[in-house]
């Protein structure tokens, strides 16, 4: 068992404790509420990434059932311990993903397994899980608009307030103080009608 404190789960308001063992990972909110523990079985793990995030460093786990799980607040020195435990217990690498910091708004939008990545100079600038997208449409010539799922109430976590306000899929943008509601891209060569997709943002 390896334990890390001051870790935020899925943009939770408060930090909790996350623990890793050979069976998977768990996250406990502050205040010792043992009933409300988030767990993810290691058989679900597909991929794990290490990046700089808002609170500190982030471990992002892509899993079969839960899609993207974000754990933010690790220290840079935690990397070696985490990379080792992912290798030994889960037989997967903790991929170090350095994000673009150039401040450019041009690059390449790429569609991965679970998320849309915007790459700047071959480095990801940000990712958007598909679960967070409520609608896309062709807003104009060469212009694609993406709308994000917004809880009716900005403070609604989608988890009945449990897990210290950690967000469920489809509610993640609500975890920020300033909540992203729409993103528009200029895509050269987009002429035909964009596919209108409505994804199920509810759990």
């Amino acid at each position: 068992m390896e334990s890390f404190s001051d870790i935020y789960l899925n943009l939770s308001k408060k930090p909790g404790v996350t623990r890793f063992s050979d069976s998977g990972l768990g996250w406990k909110p502050p205040g010792g509420d043992n009933a409300a523990t988030f767990t993810l079985d290691q058989t679900q793990f597909i991929q794990a990434q290490w990046s700089r995030a808002a609170r500190g460093y982030e471990v992002k786990v892509l899993s079969r059932q839960n899609g993207i799980t974000q754990l933010d607040g690790f220290k840079i020195d935690d990397y070696d311990r985490l990379a080792k435990l992912f290798k030994v217990w889960y037989a997967i690498g903790l991929e170090n993903r350095e994000h673009a910091l150039r401040g450019w708004n041009w690059g390449k939008a790429e569609f991965g397994k679970a998320e849309l990545t915007f790459n700047v100079s071959n480095r990801p600038a940000f990712e958007v899980p598909y679960t967070e997208i409520s609608n896309t449409n062709l807003a104009g010539k060469n212009e694609v608009a993406i709308d994000f799922s917004m809880p009716g109430e900005g403070n609604d976590t989608g988890t009945n307030g449990a897990l210290a306000g950690a967000r469920s899929n489809g509610r993640k943008t609500g975890g920020a103080k300033d909540q992203l509601v729409e993103m528009r891209f200029y895509i050269p060569g987009v002429a035909s009608k964009a596919e209108k997709s409505k994804e199920d943002g509810e759990d």
């Binding site: 943009l11 990046s51 700089r52 995030a53 808002a54 982030e58 974000q70 933010d72 994000h99 910091l101 150039r102 401040g103 450019w104 708004n105 041009w106 600038a125 940000f126 990712e127 958007v128 899980p129 967070e132 993640k172 943008t173 975890g175 920020a176 103080k177 300033d178 992203l180």
Partner: peptide, 28 residues
């Protein structure tokens, strides 16, 4: 704080996108 930050010194606006601070230079 997962809020928008204007970093005048670096001529940059940092926007929170899905928990990540994403810089955009004022020139963009």
């Amino acid at each position: 704080n997962l809020g928008i930050v204007v970093d005048k010194k670096s001529l940059t606006v940092i926007l929170p996108i899905m928990g990540r601070p994403v810089p955009f230079h004022i020139h963009t």
